[in-house]
Amino acid sequence: MIELRDIRKAFGRNHVLRGVTLTVPKGESMVIIGGSGTGKSVLLKCILGLVRPDAGQILIEGEDASRAEREAFLARFGMLFQGGALFDSLPVWQNVAFRLMRGATKRPKAEAREIAIEKLRRVGLKPEVADLFPAELSGGMQKRVGLARAIAAEPEIIFFDEPTTGLDPIMAGVINELIREIVVEMGATAMTITHDMSSVRAIADDVAMLHGGVIQWTGPVADMDHSGDPYLDQFIHGRAEGPIEAVR
């Protein structure tokens, strides 16, 4: 279970998070939605320790994230970055097996390669892709490789940052299905950030809307369409008119 208690973060005068409190039950898929610049990515980075919150507490299975041993803590997570964030200098299989070739979970090279190819197959990529470099792949393939890397060490918690951004609708649908299948199959706790409402409906068990630096609404995905919350309604229907100011 992931518990966020009153997380606050400001960059200079820009108070991005103003007290985010949210609980993600173990094995559930939580999707966080919200406009651009509302701090969704900052929230994920706070959990991972990439950004230090100014205040608040982050608990993973009841353990304070700020006090956890760093390597063991991070070993529990997998993350799919928005742009893939694949290492240009390494072939695809070494990107996927990166964690498996270093640190406490280090495996022999041949075994790491085998696992990488298996994970690539799991995300629908052929073994021939393993020896290509990221620059030789399409955007959709890069996302799949990023997904394979995120699940390579079979983490308990997986974060997905805008998993369908920049993809055509069909490829976005494929990635959404893959994410849902993998999360269910692995029994992992998942947190996804997206603007894409089709992703929300495909991936989410629960939804949280971040607005004005706080969680504006949270609940099961089934309740999203009749929440009665004007902010959420405006967002999910993409209306220019409503309580959320649209810049024209």
């Binding site: 742009g83 964030a85 890397r149």
Partner: peptide, 16 residues
């Protein structure tokens, strides 16, 4: 370039 494409963040999340 690694920083702006989040590769540095990716390294950290991979315990490196």
């Amino acid at each position: 370039t690694m920083k702006v494409t989040e590769q540095i963040d990716a390294l950290v999340t991979l315990s490196t």
